[in-house]
Simulated scan of single mutants.
Amino acid sequence: MVVPPSRKAVLSLYACTLRTAKSFSSYNFRNYFVRRTKETFRGMQTEQDPNKLSQAYNDAVKELSVLRRSAVVNQLYGGWRLAVEEQSDVRTRGDT
């Protein structure tokens, strides 16, 4: 018999994954991974089978380690900011 992860463990993993997803410097990657994280954990929330829940939890733990490494690389080589992102440090025509 498989013991499913506790609610606290799942919520903690969700918070860590969401925090890591939000740390991407690239707008497109950041939004994609935040959306994907929310979808993944919504699926885990509705899962009733303890075996499937444990498997999904273990997969999410593995994905978190990959996501952390990817976020570090993205922060190193992030690139330019996009027009849709807030650019508070950029001067506008009225500031001159």
Rank of each mutant, 00 (worst) to 15 (best):
F33Q: 09
R36V: 08
R69K: 15
V2S: 04
S23I: 04
R81Y: 01
Q87M: 10
S54H: 09
K38A: 01
L82D: 10
S54W: 01
F41A: 07
A21W: 01
K52F: 06
R81N: 04
L53N: 00
K8P: 05
G94Q: 15
K52Q: 06
A60W: 00
K62R: 13
R35K: 14
A9G: 02
E63I: 00
L53E: 04
N74T: 08
N58E: 00
L11V: 00
Q87A: 10
D49E: 04
L64A: 06
D59Q: 12
R81G: 10
L82N: 08
V2K: 02
V73A: 08
T40M: 11
R91K: 14
V72K: 08
R68K: 11
S12M: 06
R35D: 11
E85P: 08
K22H: 09
A71C: 03
N31R: 02
E39T: 06
S12P: 07
R91G: 09
R68V: 00
V34W: 00
R36T: 10
L11E: 08
L67V: 02
V61K: 09
L76D: 02
S88A: 12
S65P: 05
N74E: 02
R81A: 13
R68H: 09
T96C: 10
E39Y: 09
V90P: 04
A83V: 02
A21M: 05
P50C: 02
E86I: 05
N31D: 11
Q55S: 11
K8Q: 09
N31Q: 13
F29D: 02
K38D: 03
R42W: 05
A15V: 03
Y32S: 00
Q55P: 10
A9F: 13
V2C: 07
R7T: 00
T92V: 12
Y77T: 13
G94T: 15
T40I: 07
E39D: 07
R42Q: 09
P50Q: 06
T46E: 14
Y27K: 14
F29T: 02
D59P: 08
V72W: 11
N31M: 09
N51H: 15
S6L: 04
T17K: 05
R30W: 08
R7C: 12
K8F: 04
R19K: 15
N28I: 11
W80S: 15
V34R: 12
E86C: 05
W80G: 13
W80Q: 15
L13K: 01
N28A: 14
Q87P: 06
V2M: 04
D89M: 12
Y27A: 15
E63S: 08
S25P: 04
